[in-house]
Design a protein around this nucleic acid. Structure first.
Length: 162
DNA sequence: AGTTCGGACCGTT
DNA sequence: AACGGTCCGAACT
């Protein structure tokens, strides 16, 4: 597992790579994160890193993220992975309610569990858990902080009740 | 139209 | 057994 910085106009995200692909993404820390030792990086991870940096910046601009690296979602349960997969199917500029996602994954009564799975999303922004809203167009929650959720939705032109 | 309350529901720890 | 990024209806203001 290897961590590499992802500089953006919103600060420096931190990407975690496993040997399977991108495994995690964390929002910028409030203070500058200490610099890491320059560990040797394989060519493959270098490619993934560049792809991640580009995709994150696209997503932060409210555009569709293209050329994603392989995502390593293996630590997730089957249910969580199906939710994360459903989230990836929501295009930029669109939103779904937790209940709608629950129906989409075949557990129509599991809206709460869907919210729980969204909170466990290891790769926010690229796996767009911010496009999951509460019923009736209400914002709902966000583990990364609601300010981030609003910012991301606003850049996609999807901020509810604006 | 907006709010609060209470129960029901489901996956995770 | 308890907890959530929920949902829905009912009963308020």
């Amino acid at each position: 597992m290897l961590q590499l910085p992802i500089p953006t106009r919103d600060g420096t995200f931190l990407a975690t790579f496993s040997d399977q692909g991108l495994a995690g993404l964390t929002f910028p820390a409030l203070r500058n994160n200490a610099r890491r030792k320059p560990a040797p990086i394989s060519r493959e991870v270098q490619r993934w890193h560049r792809a991640t940096e580009r995709a994150v910046n696209q997503a932060l601009a409210g555009r569709k993220a293209s050329g994603l690296p392989p995502l390593d979602l293996s630590p997730g349960t089957a249910f969580q992975q199906s939710v994360w997969r459903a989230l990836q199917g929501i295009p930029a500029g669109a939103t779904r309610s937790y209940g709608e996602i629950a129906r989409a994954v075949g557990s129509p009564r599991a809206s709460r569990a869907v919210g729980q799975a969204c909170g466990a999303n290891p790769i926010p922004v690229l796996i767009p858990c911010h496009r999951a809203l509460a019923a009736g167009g209400k914002l709902g929650g966000f583990s990364g902080g609601l300010d981030w959720k609003r910012r991301l939705l606003q850049r996609e032109g999807s901020l509810p009740q604006e």
